[in-house]
């Protein structure tokens, strides 16, 4: 029963794609290098089993800047993001080639321990995922396991500071003992951001942090990202091009595992150099 319909759907999907594939440049358009890179990726390939998810990506991530990754679903932008703090290690079939360096040190070198790496490269996820613990414990968890505070007062300071910087302090200061899961979606996401910055990372990775939030909560997070970019290097994956335009200084466009184009956000959205970038940001596909 399904075969006939499937073939038709396949045809619809396949035809434009097969055209596009021939359009993907072998070299990334735009300048992948920056003057003060915090992280550098060189010729990175990622495989899930035999399937190639990321194909020869070279990219610098500049210090104290926001870079956004855009592209259609399944283009590998989240995969690439998760490579930056080795979150893909938990997937057994995932294999990575090439080098990714943080401050010039290869994070995939054999002796590297992922624990300090993830303390330096924090992460905020698509769906707000506070621990089913109190608001205080959510933020204090990172500092506790890394031994960042020697006294209770010090830990209190870290928690307060992180919540203040995540713009959540005023809303939760009277109920730090209540479960973090009882907050609204937007508050939960800011709690997750507070949890990430509590361990004083250098880089924060954000994987579509606003996709589960309403516009008001989204605006609040975007504002926050802007504020945090003064202190942290931020990499954000987003499906919203407006969001990319609003929060980031640089934008990278991924397509089918390839990094098609990267450049200043303003340039990408006003004068894209590659035809596919142009088509994507004008809503022709994606």
């Amino acid at each position: 029963m399904g075969s006939l319909m499937d073939t038709q759907i396949m045809n619809i999907v396949d035809q434009p794609q097969s055209l596009e594939i021939s359009n993907i440049p072998s070299e990334t358009v735009g300048d992948v290098h920056v003057d003060h890179p915090r992280m550098t990726a060189r010729n990175v390939n990622v495989f899930y089993g035999d399937k190639c998810a990321i194909d020869d990506v070279t990219l610098d991530i500049a210090e104290k800047q926001v870079i956004s990754f855009i592209g259609p679903s399944g283009c590998g932008k989240s995969t690439f993001l998760r490579c930056l703090n080795r979150m893909n290690d938990t997937i057994d079939t995932c294999r990575i080639e090439g080098t990714i360096a943080l401050d010039g040190q290869d994070i995939y070198a054999p002796h590297v321990d992922v624990v300090p790496l993830r303390a330096r490269v924090g992460m905020v996820f698509q769906k707000p995922n506070p621990f089913p613990k109190s608001i205080y414990d959510n933020v204090a968890y990172g500092p506790r396991i890394h031994g960042l505070a020697s006294r209770r007062a010090e830990l209190d300071d870290i928690v307060e500071n992180s919540l203040v910087r995540a713009g959540l302090w005023d809303e939760v200061k009277d109920r730090l003992g209540q479960p973090g899961t009882g907050l609204s979606g937007g508050q939960q996401q800011r709690l997750c951001i507070a949890r990430a910055i509590a361990v004083s990372p250098e880089v924060i990775l954000m994987d579509e942090p606003c996709s589960a939030l309403d516009p008001i909560a989204t605006a609040r997070i975007e504002e926050l990202i802007h504020e945090l970019s003064a202190e942290f290097t931020i990499v954000i994956v987003t499906h919203s091009m407006q969001q990319a335009a609003r929060v980031s200084q640089r934008t990278a466009y991924f397509h089918l595992g390839k990094l098609v184009e990267v450049g200043e956000t303003e340039q990408i959205f006003t004068k894209p150099q590659h035809e596919m970038t142009h088509n994507y940001i004008t809503g022709r596909f994606g």
Binding site: M87, T90, R118, A119
Partner: peptide, 19 residues
Amino acid sequence: SIRDAALGVGASRVQTMLH
């Protein structure tokens, strides 16, 4: 998502498990 959250702040696998 709970595992991701714990691993994301730098908990080791055993810590993620036990905590």
